[in-house]
Design a protein around this nucleic acid. Structure first.
Length: 585
RNA sequence: GCGCUUGUAGCUCAGCUGGAUAGAGCAUCGGCCUUCUAAGCCGAGGGUCGCAGGUUCGAGUCCUGCCAAGCGUGCCA
């Protein structure tokens, strides 16, 4: 409908050009909007005001010429010129009714578009370190990321969802060492636990499983483990030096077996994360291992490419990437003075790998605390000779948890956190997903557990689901009264839908495709939530104002068709967000 | 200090890429169940859009400068 109007306007502009009012080579951008006030019709354009200057006419005069040049079309019942030069379009009611048929004919497909057809997009999200279970902060990234991916898919893009697994590096060594130490405790050894180790209960669980499976195979005497270690922080030492020494000790004492302990920890946590996400309705095509970039020498290769391009230099025993030449605020180390590559070096290789896979667009969804990281990654892409605009980084602010007025502290290290799993079991998946994407991603978000866990009517997800359940209930009532639906009769009598609430619903239904499209291209799933609330609101108003199951068969079926269309759109939008549409509540 | 993000009703947030009289939900107040689910509906009150300039037909939206909050500013990941 909107596209049709835009093309009519384009024709009018062309006509003005042939009349000599506009320069022939002038390119007019048509800006057509939904009106906020019904008095202004259904659509409005500011075209006359935009073109007033180049046409050297005042906006209202020009508007008249545009209207005169506008081809006739059955779609439009009236065109007005208003205010400083707005052109308002009133849509013919007969064409408004057609939306009901369009929705019911298209079914689950209604709303999806083809704007992304032929374009491959990769969406990488969550990618939390596998050093512990996902917490509520990751939950927001998961809900947001999967919604963005699903929106893009609905817009016709070929979408690949990916999780980058940080299975290399010091944090993982700390985890492996923590697992081993708890394992030693399970064996009966007595030894202190490092202040910088992972103290969460889940580490004990992993160790217990390891002990059950492997017996005392990895047991070493605590005296050997603790011999000549630098002091831990509570004892006046340095906790970093202490933990590093412990890691070295684990590697020395275990030898090749260290890898088995390491792998046991990684596997168990990663399995838990995969499981957790699957239950949350989040799926991936690809779990990409950081370690694989080292094993297949991608990191070395990436560094060689940077070197060949003249972006690497040596200083103080380390190798630096001259990212400041490409917009970063300072240069970055890629190989440490101890010969180990940094996390950033892996990330350069990872993005090189993404580029090589030929995506048209690469979307990274990061926690907002990583924002300082964007310039250096973009710098790396440029240094690799790639178009950095292919990369879109979307930042998600962490959700700040409250229990009533009290802020809940979270730290994976200390083990004090609320996991995504806990949150889901308390709030339920539907409310979880709804809450997480309700807000714009870069908004700070207060997540009050007390409120979210209270199963009260304050919860907006119930409001939307209730609308769906009510439609289902009406259909059940129809059946119980021994009456039959006659969709065909309803379709022929859509013009009986003349109530104020019916007109509002027709308009809102017709807005769904453009809402979906806008939400997709802007990466803003919250727009879909707002749409759902509006649609549910209008349906509830309608429900209260009018009876659907009236004696008049024609009117009754027309109304049933309308609410079935509402039901369909509710289902389409909710299922996109992986939220249930219950038949009864 | 510098950088990024945010600042809209008592609270939590929208505001369709610069449009017409700034909107929802909670909360407060007043109404609506012998008729399809009251987890609902209808109505009322509540605003210097952080502050000050600027750009133009027109600014919550764009530019500049302040103010405030969060985050970042590792040879951690």
């Amino acid at each position: 409908m909107k596209q049709k109007l835009e093309s009519l306007l384009q024709q009018a502009v062309t006509a003005l050009k042939t009349q000599g009012i506009l320069e022939n080579d002038f390119i007019a951008q048509i800006n057509l909007e939904r009106t906020r006030d019904v008095l202004h019709g259904d659509f409005a354009t500011n075209l006359a005001m935009m073109l007033a200057k180049p046409a050297k006419l005042n906006p209202r005069q020009l508007a008249e010429k545009i209207v005169a040049a506008l081809p006739n079309d059955a779609l439009i019942s009236k065109v007005d010129i208003a205010g400083p030069g707005f052109i308002n379009f009133f849509i013919n009611p007969d064409s408004q009714f057609q939306i009901v048929k369009q929705v019911l004919d298209a079914g689950a497909e209604f709303g999806s578009s083809k704007i992304g057809v032929g374009k491959r997009v990769q969406v990488e999200f969550v990618s939390a370190n596998p050093t512990g279970p996902l917490h509520v902060g990751h939950g927001r990234g998961a809900a947001y990321g999967s919604a963005v991916a699903d929106l893009l898919a609905a817009a016709g893009f070929e979408v690949e969802r990916e999780y980058y697994v940080n299975d290399a590096g010091r944090q993982m060594d700390i985890l492996a060492t923590s697992v081993w130490l708890r394992y030693l405790e399970a064996c009966g050894e007595v030894l202190p636990f490092p202040s910088n180790g992972y103290r969460g209960e889940y580490v004990r669980d992993i160790s217990a499983n390891l002990h059950k499976k492997a017996g005392d195979a990895y047991r070493r005497a605590s005296t050997l483990v603790m011999a000549d270690l630098p002091a831990d922080e509570p004892q006046g030492g340095d906790k970093e030096k202490h933990i590093d020494a412990l890691i070295d000790r684990a590697k020395t004492l275990l030898g090749e077996a260290y890898k088995e302990v390491f792998q046991a920890g990684l596997d168990e946590i990663l399995d838990d994360i995969k499981d957790d996400l699957a239950e949350f309705g989040v799926s991936y095509q690809q779990w990409f291992s950081e370690r694989s970039l080292m094993d297949d020498h991608s990191v070395e290769q990436a560094l060689r490419r940077l070197d060949a391009a003249g972006y690497l230099y040596q200083q103080e025993g380390a190798t630096w990437f001259a990212s400041s030449r490409l917009g970063d605020e300072k240069d970055r180390v890629v190989v440490r003075d101890n010969g180990q590559t940094t996390y950033f070096a892996s990330d350069i290789a990872y993005h090189m790998h993404k580029l090589d896979r030929g995506f048209d667009q690469i979307v990274n969804i990061w926690g907002a605390d990583h924002h300082g990281y964007i310039p250096r990654v973009k710098a790396a892409m440029q240094a690799l000779g790639a178009d950095e605009s292919k990369l879109k980084v979307l930042l998600v602010q962490f959700a700040i948890l409250y229990r009533g007025d009290e802020k809940v502290q979270m730290s994976t290290r200390s083990g004090e956190f609320v996991t995504l799993r806990q949150l889901r079991s308390e709030v339920g998946r539907d409310a979880c997903r709804f809450f997480y994407v309700m807000r714009k991603s870069e908004q700070h978000m207060d997540f009050d557990l007390k409120l979210a866990t209270s199963r009260s009517n304050e919860n907006p997800v119930y409001y939307v689901q209730y609308a769906h359940a009510r439609v289902c209930s009406v259909l059940r009532q129809l059946d119980e009264k021994g009456r039959q639906r006659n969709p065909h009769l309803g379709m022929e009598n859509l013009n009986l839908l003349t109530e104020e609430q019916e007109a509002a619903l027709l308009t809102t239904l017709s807005k769904y495709p453009e809402t979906l499209e806008r939400a997709a291209v802007n990466y803003e799933p919250h727009q879909l939530i707002h749409y759902l609330r509006e649609l549910a609101n209008q349906f509830h108003s309608y429900y209260n104002a009018h009876q659907f199951l009236v004696d008049d068969e024609k009117l009754c079926n027309a109304r049933i068709n309308l609410i079935c269309a509402v039901k369909q759109v509710l289902v389409n939008a909710l299922s996109l967000l992986k939220i249930n549409a219950p038949e009864a509540m």
